[in-house]
């Protein structure tokens, strides 16, 4: 940072590529939050994340870039797509993806952008670093994780396990509410419960996933 900061113009090749990728990422992100197609949103998200991975590469953070591709593009988006499918979202345009306070949201977002960009530009105008590959490699980062950041790493493993168990137990449909409905403070009348618990098992367990979305289909 003590080095003299080179001028912004002309940009270097790296910067040009970075900016292009950044424009792609931001544009795709904008489409994610504005598109009317639920599935398209997920696909635009892939593009945005991919472009960001490219940005990381340019910033010499190779390992992060690959993790980004693996986890975000690979796992997260797939997860989101599954979620979209499982909630029976329409494939086509859905008119009600946005709530009514879009204008307010836009104003807030623009204000946020204004403040953040101003501040960031002011704060980091003079920040410059030559990019040399190496420090972001897997070896460097791995050694850093296991030398300095063991504890958060371990905590993260507990977190992942908890997330795993939580997701499983929430999605499992084979555990029915037991005989003791009393746990529900709703105090639904018990007699019906007992009768109902067994027969509607199938209907409750799978149906919302399997049966065609009769109601929604009218929307197309």
């Amino acid at each position: 940072m003590t080095d003299p900061v080179p001028p912004f113009l002309p940009p270097t090749g790296q910067e040009i590529v970075f900016l292009l990728l950044g424009v792609v990422a931001a544009g795709a992100a904008l489409l994610v939050v504005t598109t009317k197609h639920l599935v398209h949103a997920a696909l635009w998200l892939v593009l945005s994340f991919g472009a960001l991975a490219g940005c990381y590469l340019i910033l010499t953070a190779e390992f992060v870039a690959w993790v980004q591709v693996l986890i975000y593009v690979g796992a997260v988006v797939v997860l989101l797509l599954f979620g979209i499918m499982l909630t029976r979202a329409p494939i086509g345009r859905s008119p009600d993806l946005d709530s009514r306070n879009r204008v307010v949201a836009a104003i807030v977002a623009l204000a946020t952008a204004g403040v953040l960009i101003t501040v960031v530009v002011e704060g980091f105008r003079g920040a410059y670093t030559p990019l040399e590959p190496g420090p972001g490699a897997a070896k460097e980062l791995g050694s850093s994780v296991f030398r300095t950041w063991v504890l958060p790493f371990e905590a993260l493993s507990v977190l992942l396990l908890a997330a795993l168990i939580g997701a499983i137990v929430l999605s499992r449909t084979d555990i029915r509410p037991g005989a003791g409905r009393g746990a529900d403070p709703g105090g639904a009348p018990p007699p019906e419960d007992g009768a109902q618990a067994v027969p509607d098992r199938d209907e409750k367990a799978s149906p919302s996933l399997a049966s065609p979305p009769t109601g929604r289909s009218g929307g197309k």
Partner: peptide, 29 residues
Amino acid sequence: MHIVYPSVLSAVLFSIGVYGVLARRNTIL
């Protein structure tokens, strides 16, 4: 590399995210 570029990109992305959080009503979005 000027650090301003990624920072501004980050600010833009963040704002877009803010817009999405506020404007979308589908949980997955």
